[in-house]
Amino acid sequence: MKRQFPLLLVFLSGVFMVIQYFVPAGFSEKAYEFLIDWTIIIGIFALALGIWSLVRVSYHKIKTGHPDAKYSMVTLAGLALMLFFGFQFPGYDYKEVYRASQARDYIATNFNNAGAAATEKVFLPENDTLSIDVATLRAELPQFADSVEHWVELFQTSDWFEGADNEAEDLAAVTAAAEELRAMVAQYDGVSRADTATLTALGAQISGISERGAEAANRLDGITDVYPFTGGLESYMFRAFFEHIMIPIQATMFSLLAFYIASAAYRAFRARNLLSTVLLIAAFIVMARVLEMGPLTDLVNKLSAWVLLVPNLAAKRAIWIGVGLGIVATSLKVILGIERSYLGRD
């Protein structure tokens, strides 16, 4: 169980992915999509591990009075502030709390989707995964209406928003449009997918209703969040920290490399023998592309293009071929269970 099963899992999933590449149809296609979807999700948890490790290390330094303890506090403070700005607010409940703008968008979204389903998706070719047939459309229309009404109710009852009373007229217009959507279901009685004339007419009608509904929803901008200090990806502080702390520090830390390459070039770049002289000359030709060379400019450009597209290309191609063969060989060793260092010890 501890070692054999993981090895079997690697073998099966690896072999499946290889086969899938050559037989991309039917079941294998669906399974492939699932595996991609799932692996991304699993990966997110793995990434979170790294962040937890950072917290543990910093906490440990503070607890043991490490000389850098005060800097570890700065690290943890930065982390905590970013979490505070990024999540909506302290004590927030995922299912209950929405921002007014978000709720408004969801109403508009539902209307837009209803319109799109009736006017576009019914007409897509049947093998197109976006397409829906008439029966699905009939089932979906009331769902769109339900969803809209759910958000309207939230506006009217939730403590998270204020100003809903002044918006009664627009809220009523939204509700009315939702009702109309629901009523449209009956119009599809006996209409088949082939009857494009009727479908077009009904689609236009639904599209009209949806547009009215979405417009009314967009007018609901008088409804505001009770908590002005809302967080999320669009939060002022979240963006400000990125743009004015992360960008300058990360960019400047890397810019130190400009100085180190200057000093490295000065100390280590010597024409010791023919090989290093060849390297030096190639580097000079590529560097000369940015210099003002007067009458030589044309020659330098031609020479540097030649260096890049003939010898450089040949060298890099040989390296890529080597790398490619190396990756394939290693991957095969992993799938066949010959290379198993990823399992760790034990």
């Binding site: 000065y266 770049f269 010791r272 560097m287 940015v290």
Partner: peptide, 20 residues
Amino acid sequence: VQTYAHLVIIAFILIGNIGF
């Protein structure tokens, strides 16, 4: 700016090599 910065790098490479 790159033009002049490159000249600095090239100059230092040359200085290092002359010394060498």
